[in-house]
Simulated scan of single mutants.
Amino acid sequence: MPKRAVLLVNLGSPDSTSVPDVRRYLREFLGDERVLDLPAAARWLLLEGIILRTRPKKSAHAYSEIWRPEGSPLIITSKSVQKKLAAKLGDDTPVYLAMRYGNPSVASVIAQIAADGIEEILLFPQYPHYAMSSWETVVVKVFEEAAKLAPKLTITTVQPFYADKDYIEALYEVSQPYFAQAHDHVLFSYHGIPERHLRKADSSKAHCLTVKDCCATCSTAHATCYRAQVLATTRALVKRAGIAEDKYSVSFQSRLAGEPWLTPYTDFELVRLPKEAGKKNLLILCPAFVSDCLETIEEISGEGKEIFMGAGGAVFQQIPCLNDQAPYIDFVHGRVQRWLVGETPEATRAKAFLDA
């Protein structure tokens, strides 16, 4: 049998909360053509001429608010997932961890995989939903580095698992103790993307944001439609938890100014819900992230709570991400086990996607 391994890849974090480290991280992150998908010259001017002159200091402060003695929460949690998954798989199937931006880098980990004599890997992007700025950029980066550093390596990629019944069950198990508490409303806050990204990902160029109720109208475009996928996750979890239609809503957090992003915006909803809808006791969860990070801890638990309470809210409770909790480890382990025994209808060769 070929020597096999698992490669987990998450977003990443700066090496520290220092402004230079944050600037270096943002340069790599926002310099990605799938994140800021502008022509190279325009992307460089925006990044170097505007964003990196002001944002690193502000972001460094935000990171300092969530940093732990051991480092970045996202890195700490990701390493714990790696360790717990490795314990369940045993020595025959090593588990590697890389970050799309920052350290440990994809290149360094692919080099280590090659040095260890690994012949096949299961690439497991830590993103439930497809987006060119998340799932796709991870897959592309891994294949690019493998082509240079380990050209004989066989790579199988776990596809976005937004509607996988075991993933939904993991979300339910983690969320149910909070759903059982008294509350007026549940807000599903997903990371935002520009509307333009939906149109670019629509291979038909005639469905996303073009057809009325496009996310509710069956289409092959949904295979690469972030909005359709997050709504599918929401519907599945709401059904599993028995949440009434008038007791939940969906919003999108994090955006850059200058163009339309997916709406409604989370910060606007955190004002509207208590002030206009009378929803004073709120549960909020962020299923686009498997690990709590800057966007969930600082942006939601910090700024988001302040906005909600300032608008007249009474109780604000954030449901943690899956993190390294047992339901998520069991889900990931189950997917890996299916790959190991050859039962992988949902894990396809990523090269077919890249060549399409």
Rank of each mutant, 00 (worst) to 15 (best):
N281F: 08
R196Y: 01
Y178E: 07
F316A: 10
I193R: 09
E306G: 07
L46W: 02
R199D: 01
L8I: 04
Q337A: 12
Y162G: 03
H129K: 08
L11R: 02
I110Q: 02
T234E: 10
D15E: 15
P125H: 04
S301N: 14
A228P: 03
K152H: 11
V95S: 13
V22H: 14
S251P: 12
E298K: 09
Y248P: 08
A201Q: 07
L256V: 07
P14F: 04
A111I: 03
D267R: 04
Q317L: 08
E276M: 05
C225L: 09
A111T: 14
L45R: 05
L123S: 02
Y167Q: 07
D202Q: 12
T137A: 14
A131D: 05
A314M: 02
T296Y: 09
Q159C: 05
T224D: 10
K279D: 08
F289W: 04
T137E: 13
L7V: 04
T296K: 10
Q229Y: 11
E119P: 11
V211E: 13
W67K: 07
P151C: 09
W339Y: 05
N323A: 10
D164T: 03
R272W: 01
I51E: 05
P2V: 13
P94T: 12
S189I: 03
D164H: 13
K200E: 11
M99E: 09
G310E: 07
P14N: 13
A241P: 01
V19P: 00
T224W: 08
L45Y: 11
V95R: 13
S203A: 14
A221N: 13
D292I: 14
S291I: 06
A228M: 05
Q126V: 03
L11P: 02
T344W: 00
W44M: 09
K141N: 11
A326W: 00
Q159L: 11
S175A: 15
Y172D: 08
V138S: 07
